[in-house]
Amino acid sequence: MTSVIETGARPKWLNKRLVLSPIFDETRSALNSLRINTVCESSRCPNLTECFSRRNATFLILGRNCTRACAFCSINKGLPARLDTEEPYRLASAAKRLGVKHVVITSVTRDDLEDGGASQFVACVKALRELSVEITVEVLVPDFAGKLLSVDKVLASGPHVFGHNMETTRRLYPALRKGADYDVSLSILKKAASFSPNVVAKSGIILGLGESEDEIRNTILDIREAGCDMLTIGQYLAPSSGCEPVHKFYRPEEFEFYRDMAIRAGFKVVSAGSFVRSSYLAEMMYKETKGC
């Protein structure tokens, strides 16, 4: 039972099952009609049919163009969009239309904006609050060019989960995350973790970019030391041929190994696997963290 196509030596366990459901189309058209961008679409995520069929989507705010050029990402690099003051309301409308109970908001990096886009995150959290006090909100923020005042601003708006992804190990930062700084990202997580017991700090790393086992261990320990309770560990898949090639496909048991390592390090909830992404099954992860 082998494929006739040479899939660039893509291993068998990296087979994503498509979900064929009318809800997929409903979700897609609801998002399109409200002009909502999602990272699910911009990143060409292979979980798209599964998540959209569950009415799960991760909203991407502040436009489609990013001011950074991380080597593992397929989001457009280009002139950033004009700040759209209607966006928070459209986002709340979309959440209402989809009937979601847990909303994940992320953004492109906006080095062109004074606050890195923090006020737009705040406006979105507010708009969701006005819509419903029941909705739990997870933000997944960029590094705001290290401006901790922006981090404070977003934290003060009261998200339930504050996420910032470390993405990769310290050594690979200069090559893969140009413009970012490993210690700056850690300081953002520290800030979030110590802000309030009501906010859970979360981070994510992607494997397969050329890191070693020791480097993964150190990154996991650094994130834990920063105070994060939630961690995701996923497989890097090159979104397009222009991106960094995949250096290694980790086996399911290797993800288990790193999951156990993270749990031993003290994380409350760890999600690890080939198709795990930082906001994959975010609601479930949050509930697990809260013990409900």
Binding site: R17, L18, L20, L237, S241
Partner: peptide
């Protein structure tokens, strides 16, 4: 098979 992933269609 696509550039990014392999899918099984039910």
């Amino acid at each position: 098979v696509t550039d990014k992933a392999t899918f099984n269609m039910p």
